[in-house]
């Protein structure tokens, strides 16, 4: 028995297992901020990743362009057909916007949950083991990014900032499994909107789970799901996806909808981090 404990390697192994458990415990704790050493390592590797990333992206971009050329004719045809529709829509949007502004001026209500300041960022890395779906972007606290801000691509919401260090930050994608990851959202229905929460992601169906919908709410397929801005961090009106199927949830008291995400989580190069204008104003006031 003493022989057994004298074995140096075994002791080393045991100590490192204890160390491993302690470290995992430490990192699973709900941390507001990363330690400065982690931030430093992240920023340094972020710089190296950025150096490698640019040429690689160029080469990949070239091949993508060749692929695009093949589809150009077909796409062009489709786009031309859509163009007329677009002009009409544009005119309508303009008048509505103007009307909205006028009405707001009448009400003396300047801020809205919808307004946000966009911060553009480039994706410089992605978690290779893909257990947690995360991407690394090249903007950090120095550029005004904070934890929990919404991250979008032009097509829709893709996730939120998980941790921000000084010059880089990590984005947790909506497809990550995280029970604390709840987003207040609503469905644009014909008769009023229906509120609920986006909670989780179904890997098999590749759809987000939109839960806590009142049982009598009328939701149909193809209806748009948007952020409601009531959660406190995200602005209102960012597109999340469209309803795919509505089912009663496990207890039968509320309904649940499968939502097909509007943005592609696999193909993200450029993202926009969204800073809510209301928060920015309040910050300025408290300073």
């Amino acid at each position: 028995m003493p022989q057994f404990f004298l074995n140096k390697r075994l002791i080393l192994l045991l100590v490192s297992i204890i160390f491993l458990v302690a470290l995992i415990g430490f990192s699973l704790k709900d941390r507001k901020e990363l330690t400065w050493s982690e931030q430093f390592v992240k920023d340094t590797t972020g710089f190296v990743q950025f150096l490698f990333h640019q040429p690689a992206q160029l080469v990949a971009g070239f091949f993508e362009n060749v692929q695009d050329m093949k589809n150009t004719y077909k796409e062009n045809k489709l786009l031309k057909a859509r163009l007329e529709e677009y002009v009409m829509l544009e005119a309508e949007v303009q008048t509505l916007k103007k009307e909205n502004e006028e009405l707001r001026a009448v009400l003396d209500k300047k801020e809205s949950l919808r307004d946000f300041i966009p911060i553009e960022a480039t994706v410089i890395g992605r978690n290779p083991d893909r257990w947690q779906e995360m991407v690394i972007i090249n903007k950090g606290e120095q550029q005004g990014i904070k934890k929990d801000m919404a991250v979008i691509t032009p097509s829709g919401l893709i996730g939120k900032i998980q941790h921000a260090s000084q010059f880089t930050s990590t984005v947790q994608l909506l497809s990550a499994i995280d029970r604390q990851n709840r987003i207040s959202a609503y469905v644009q229905g014909k008769d009023g909107s229906v509120f609920g929460l986006i909670e989780g992601y179904d890997d098999k169906r590749q759809a987000l789970l939109f839960k806590q919908i009142p049982f009598d709410a009328k939701i149909e397929k193809k209806q748009l799901v948007l952020t409601s801005g009531l959660g406190g961090i995200f602005p209102k009106g960012l597109p999340i996806g469209e309803v795919e199927e509505v089912v009663p949830d496990e207890y039968g008291l509320t309904k649940m909808a499968y939502v097909k995400p509007a943005a592609n989580f696999y193909d993200v190069d450029e993202v926009i981090v969204v800073k809510r204008k209301i928060d920015a104003v309040q910050e300025g006031e408290t300073k």
């Binding site: 297992i17 491993l20 995992i24 590797t45 890395g125 978690n127 083991d129 947690q132």
Partner: peptide, 14 residues
């Protein structure tokens, strides 16, 4: 790897 990619410390370091 742990710090930059996964944010769960210790797994790969071990």
């Amino acid at each position: 790897y742990d710090v930059v990619y996964t944010e769960i410390l210790g797994v790969y370091m071990f």
